[in-house]
Amino acid sequence: MKRYGFWHDALKYRTLLLMLLPGVLFFMLFAYIPMAGVVLAFKQYTYDGGIFGSPWNGLDNFRFFFDSGSAWQVTRNTALYNIAFIIVNNVLEIAMAIFLFEIAGRWFRRVFQTLLFLPYFISWVVVGAIAYNLFSFDYGTINAVLKGLGMEPVDIYNTAAYWPVLLVVVSAWKAVGYGSIMYLAAITGIDTEMYEAAEIDGANIWQRITRITIPNLYPTIIILVLLAIGNIFRGDFGMFYNMVGNNGLLFASTDVIDTFVFRSLISSNDIGMSSAAGFYQSVLGFITILLANYAVRSYDKDRALF
């Protein structure tokens, strides 16, 4: 009986298996086959040879990538931006969630939440248009204001130094509404008896927030931050590409791994180096997400990804 177990089960679950088929085929085709395609990183790509027929060239692609000096620059930028995003966005999200929870008016709470969440709904292309409206040297609102005040206009699109701050602000602008809703949900789930007890003991509002609300948020904060750390080597391509584009003047402070891979592939058509850079990112990302998951798992087994 046991020898026929597999076929027996396959027959028994045939409808369920058939229902899974589209999904399995999809991920086979668009995720697992490309995974096998990482061999490209070790090959000299030729159009005729394709992904699997091109000749091997060992670590040449990686050597080229690391010798170009870009490897360190894009890795550092990706990690530093993500660290800045994690810190700034989470602090703002928690603050906004606490404010939303503490204000008395329900109507106000809904209006504020609606406005904070609005930027989440637009594409990065539209954010790029908004940025152009604000930052353009000739017509930008910021420069219009500066000129109106009799000050010198600033050439934002040609000054790399402004961008780290600008990108952190833009990232927060788009993400804080989303995150604050998650934190607000966590705060609303806190046992109200704690607040009542604190009230009776004469705690002031500041004590309530620092002694009850924030400690009760720790699990949520730790999980969200750890998971974000797991993705620290994945840059938000849509954001960087629509804000900076192919403006080489800004690359020193804005180029991330994802934009570098994209440019090497599409603009320079350097398939060898872009797949080496992509593979490097996949491996780094895989390791960090495993570490982050390990950390989550040791903190709270139920919240771990796997």
């Binding site: 999904g23 399995v24 995720a31 490309p34 995974m35 891979v261 992509g278 997400i289 796997f306």
Partner: peptide, 30 residues
């Protein structure tokens, strides 16, 4: 469904590791 954990992992693994942009792009185009 006996194999649900196995299939869940099959889907989930794609969020942990990916072949990156280049093989995916070449697969679709070429």
């Amino acid at each position: 469904f006996k194999w649900r954990n196995g299939f869940s992992f099959f889907f989930f693994f794609t969020t942990l590791f990916s072949g990156g942009l280049v093989p995916w792009y070449l697969l679709i185009v070429n």
